[in-house]
Nucleic acid binder design. Structure first.
Lengths: 198, 198
DNA sequence: TAGAATAGAGAACAACCGGAGAACAAATCA
DNA sequence: TGATTTGTTCTCCGGTTGTTCTCTATTCTA
């Protein structure tokens, strides 16, 4: 979305205004500051800025005009290695990582680095980065991040049957594990994979 | 598309003008700056620049004259599937693809989609995207894009011996191929891999 | 030298932009 | 609660701005 000249002007004025004040200014205040006599006119401009992603839309609830924080290309949080034996939420040190849109799911995602070769037959190697969509349910056959006994996180293919959950590794030297449903928590579903050869 | 002398002049003036201003200038402003008295005259020149891809077309909207941003955040060119049997340079339809920095080499790179399962034991599957750094030499053991007999491009692990080049697939049902050095051209080295599970 | 290509002037036009203001509903205040 | 503020939606209007057109002058070329 490209801004017109007036929209740029107003965005600038808005930035200045918001630095000076420390509360979110109302339409009337901004109108007075810009010499506008009609809230309706301002509203059209603000609307354009909202669509351009520069101003927070106010869903009827909050009042005052707020700018969106310009978090420069945040990326997806990288949460460390999997098979490290702790729940995903527990990891706080989440530095962002740039991931192409094609590898993302629809919902919130995070990135883990794979440790071990338990999924080698699926082409998932030690050291690969996997993109995981955060969700607590999965379809049978999905590859999921599963937290077992609330302490060990692992990447496996899942099969959910009445009364039991089977986690299949993809490695001939390892065998499938069967759990009771309450022993396993799904923490996300595999959506993408990245590998660096350098 | 070739520009006339006047069109080049105007393009230069436009660049300067846009650096000075901080907003997109209107036709009238540029006319004044160039000493033109008619918008219509300028319009013809701008139109030529739009067709040359140097100025953004303004699709009926009135947002002033904007230059086309060159090269910023373009992404890596996606050149199509490998094993399609044609040299990489021959492909012209190169739409950009966003690739994380971690997967890039130092030099210019491109992206191919893998066709076939000849590298399955290396965890490279049919449909995966590979990031290739464009270079004509490789170290033994590298996975490279090799062009054979100037017509068939393929992704293989390379072993260069005196007088011969061996290309190893990573698939038990396929065997290594031996070529004379002049039969094989290296077109790039594997640097990264992307896979989507959606 | 005739004709084509290039440049500019100017008029006419339609679409867009920016603004005014009224009316309304929801949130907030007294 | 009732009154006021505040965001939203709507219509209307005038000026700006991009576009299109015709006409003319100049330069280049065959």
């Amino acid at each position: 979305m490209k801004l017109t000249r007036r929209q740029q002007e107003i965005y600038q004025a808005l930035r200045d205004c918001i630095e000076h004040y420390d509360h979110a200014p109302t339409y009337d205040e901004v109108c007075r500051l810009l010499g506008l006599k009609s809230r309706g006119s301002l509203h059209k401009h603000i609307q354009a800025l909202v669509e351009a992603g520069l101003v927070e839309p106010m869903e009827g609830l909050k009042r005052g005009i707020r700018l969106v924080e310009q978090g420069v290309e945040q990326g997806i949080p990288y949460l460390g290695r999997i098979a490290a034996g702790q729940p995903i939420e527990a990891i706080t040190n989440a530095e962002p990582m740039q991931v192409p849109d094609e590898l993302l799911g629809k919902g919130p995602c995070y990135v883990l680095q794979v440790s071990g070769d338990s999924m080698i037959d699926e082409g998932i190697h030690h050291g690969d980065y996997v993109v995981i969509e955060r969700q607590e349910h999965a379809q049978n056959g999905d590859i999921v991040v599963a937290l077992i006994h609330n302490e060990e996180a692992t990447l496996k293919r899942i099969e959910q049957r009445p009364g039991e959950i089977v986690l299949y590794p993809a490695n001939p030297s390892m065998s499938a594990m069967v759990y009771r449903p309450e022993e396993v928590r799904i923490q996300g579903v595999l959506r993408g994979l990245l590998r660096s050869y350098t």
